[in-house]
Computed example of a mutant assay.
Amino acid sequence: MWSCQVIRKGKKCSPSMESFEDLTEESKKLAWSNMNKLTLQSSHKIHKEAVTGITVTLSGTSVFSTSQDSTLKMFSKEGSGLQRSVSFSNMALSSCVTLPEDKTVVCSSWDNNVYFYSIAYGRRQDTLMGHDDAVSQVCWRDNQLYTASWDSTVKVWKCVAADISSNKRNPFELLAELEHEAGVNTIALSPAGTLLASGTKEGTLSVWDVGSFSLLHQLSCHSGKIHQVAFSPDSRHILSVGEDSYLKVTDVQTGMLLSTVPAENEQRCFCWDGNTVLSGGKSGDLFIWDLLTSKIMHKIPAHSGPVTCIWMNEQCSSIITGGEDKQIMFWKHQY
């Protein structure tokens, strides 16, 4: 159990906050221990090509998905219906993230641009033309936007959510450019937002200090493309999956590879709690792994082609998957 001596913006947690956090941690543990009881709630074929990204508003009412068909779709969780479809160019969109206050969705595109979509106004609000090749992924934390690109860089931009939604002119300031030796395919921030992990098309994993924008570790992790990287909840480990059909765990402090787990087929995407992994495979199945034993504990039939993205809520109780079969699928635990 994480101690609640973690200080929230300089203040110790109140007893009520502590019990709330304990409750949240307990519910997460329960969700992960029951991951094999995931059941499909509904599936929706709303895209014409592979789904590339999923994000959900904080209120939980609207689901956004990006696709290689170049569209951003807005889907209602309650009404289970497609509400909006928007296209920014004729090139594939590669990822999406919702900014705080549920006012803006940020989308990365293969046309080298990043697009900002206003949820309230239902239109494109801004465009960031920041790269020389396709933008593969975006993530946001503490007024900083991170954009990964096949131009071999990750760029860090000052990006205040309120400035975007209030239509402030030129809201982007380039803070750093993190150089790589190959196209960057995936990025992830640590839970505290102090570290960034990046994975390239050539299998290199890099760990960066966000405060100084300095490179801490770099290792040849996979043979071939790294599909996804993610920190463990305690930020001590990074899990990566690659084209070489391995799941690999790297120690953040030392930069050393701790474990290599072979998979029967390529795993494209995942969520994890530091030990248990829920991954989406090229076969279309969802797999539940125990990293301590390096074994698959459960397999759940899901998509009719490779699973391309997984979204999980903070409580780990609600899961949405996207696939090359153009579908998004909603999953729940059946306790």
Results as ranks from 00 to 15, higher is better:
263 A>Q: 13
214 S>Y: 01
124 R>H: 01
291 L>T: 11
315 Q>C: 07
90 N>L: 07
261 V>R: 06
210 V>K: 02
260 T>W: 01
221 C>P: 00
138 V>I: 05
264 E>P: 03
93 L>C: 10
59 S>L: 08
236 R>V: 07
189 L>C: 02
140 W>E: 10
36 N>Q: 08
30 L>D: 14
147 T>Q: 00
46 I>M: 07
227 H>Y: 15
31 A>M: 04
40 L>W: 00
113 N>Y: 04
278 L>V: 13
76 S>E: 03
3 S>L: 15
188 A>N: 04
160 V>C: 02
321 T>G: 02
80 S>A: 10
302 A>R: 03
69 D>W: 10
28 K>A: 04
280 G>C: 00
288 I>R: 11
231 F>V: 02
316 C>A: 15
321 T>Q: 03
334 Q>V: 15
36 N>V: 01
7 I>E: 14
105 V>T: 12
294 S>L: 05
89 S>C: 14
269 C>Q: 03
118 S>Y: 06
245 S>M: 04
248 K>P: 01
264 E>A: 14
31 A>D: 04
288 I>V: 15
278 L>A: 12
173 E>C: 00
287 F>V: 04
47 H>E: 02
218 Q>Y: 00
72 L>T: 03
93 L>K: 14
256 M>L: 11
273 D>A: 09
153 T>F: 05
155 K>N: 12
162 A>V: 08
44 H>C: 02
256 M>C: 07
19 S>F: 09
269 C>S: 05
105 V>E: 10
70 S>C: 13
192 A>D: 14
324 E>F: 14
48 K>L: 13
111 D>R: 03
7 I>P: 00
97 V>Y: 02
324 E>P: 09
310 I>L: 14
323 G>K: 02
12 K>V: 09
106 V>P: 06
133 D>I: 07
20 F>K: 15
273 D>F: 12
326 K>A: 09
127 T>M: 11
71 T>Y: 12
19 S>E: 15
50 A>C: 10
168 K>E: 09
136 S>I: 10
255 G>M: 00
283 S>N: 15
109 S>R: 08
112 N>D: 07
188 A>Y: 03
317 S>F: 05
93 L>E: 04
310 I>Y: 05
298 H>R: 03
143 N>F: 07
75 F>P: 04
222 H>E: 06
149 S>P: 09
221 C>Y: 00
57 T>K: 12
244 D>I: 06
134 A>E: 11
322 G>V: 11
325 D>F: 06
75 F>N: 07
201 K>Q: 13
281 G>H: 11
1 M>I: 14
295 K>F: 04
311 W>G: 02
254 T>V: 03
